[in-house]
Design a protein around this nucleic acid. Sequence first.
DNA 1: ATGGTTATACTCGGATCCGAGTAATCGGAA
DNA 2: TTCCGATTACTCGGATCCGAGTATAACCAT
Lengths: 202, 202
Amino acid sequence: MTSSRRKVSNLLGLAVLGLLQESPMHPHAMAATLRERGLDRSFKLTTGSLYDVVRALERAGWIAAQETARVGGRPERTVYAHTPLGKEEFVRWLDELLRVPADEYPKFLSAVTYLGALGPEGAAAALRERAGRLRELIDGIRREHEAALAEVPRLFVLEAEYALRVMETELAWAEQTVGEIEAGTLEWPDGWVVDTSSTKEA
Amino acid sequence: MTSSRRKVSNLLGLAVLGLLQESPMHPHAMAATLRERGLDRSFKLTTGSLYDVVRALERAGWIAAQETARVGGRPERTVYAHTPLGKEEFVRWLDELLRVPADEYPKFLSAVTYLGALGPEGAAAALRERAGRLRELIDGIRREHEAALAEVPRLFVLEAEYALRVMETELAWAEQTVGEIEAGTLEWPDGWVVDTSSTKEA
DNA sequence: ATGGTTATACTCGGATCCGAGTAATCGGAA
DNA sequence: TTCCGATTACTCGGATCCGAGTATAACCAT
């Protein structure tokens, strides 16, 4: 009952709806615009999905094809615009996404569940590497964010601030856990380390 | 190049592999066991996907059907066991998941990207509700975690600690942002609030 | 014994996802 | 002028995902 029977589920649809609030556009232009604005960091953007999503939005009546024009001899392009219904739904969808925390299943959470199987050394090594990579990612995003702040109002880069906070927490957790493993504070019951001695030797 | 061309992509496969390290099992029992242990908080578990994933793991040679027995007149059940290859792959998969932060696209991140469209009041209201829900979720998980700690070693409930940390960060961000909106600290450029006056009146 | 509920165990088909492919045009260098 | 690579614009089909459905059996009360 959280949010399942939504007509269009792919969040890329929200991005499309968002773009069309500004002006009509054809799918290829949507992709280009999203990438230009760096929104492909927040939305998973692939060509295939984009066209599927656009079709789904049209079926739902939230956007409508305006014209089907051929510029030169290139493949036809269909320009879409939002409908009044689409405008409403954009806001409703957004509102619900913000209000209700969705249960998601980040890969790392699943992996941590079986952390024990790597043994203390294996687990510490893996988490150390993750921490390093996280530091780099954070640095990159922070730099981009600062650059962006010089160009646009802060409201439009809030998502980067949120992402940074979360990643910093992940980093802190990884570092802390490595520390506990090294210090021996984290008890490691026997019989839970998966033995790979047979085909080791890399 | 992050981790795409993996033979089995659904993380539920990791859970299956994990269970089979302990003992052979048929799919229905896997589902039951995962739910019993509360692992369905970390892995998205649906019947349909489970059977698909088991088939995929078998195709890949990481697990193998042991026997196909009929107990009573109920539908046949096929018991699977991990193969040596499956044991290795379990560890390799786990290791990679831990080392390399995957780029995921949490729904909330996408939504925050368009926070502006709700206007200051709308955005604050939505985030306030989210904060409330997050507080309840956190309370629930914290209670469960404490109860679990009395039963099993901490190593086996680490994922709850991680999840709690992340959720607390999300909560803090939401609260802080509400605060800034209320205080007027967060500049709200005009022309970005989607107008829904036409069909309002709810 | 009859009926109702719960548990066992899996199948099915539609929806979705997405990378690789197709196909035409344009700009510029040789 | 002709070739090549980049750009524009979209299609296709296989893989995956998953909720709803099917079918039997065990348990219990009436």
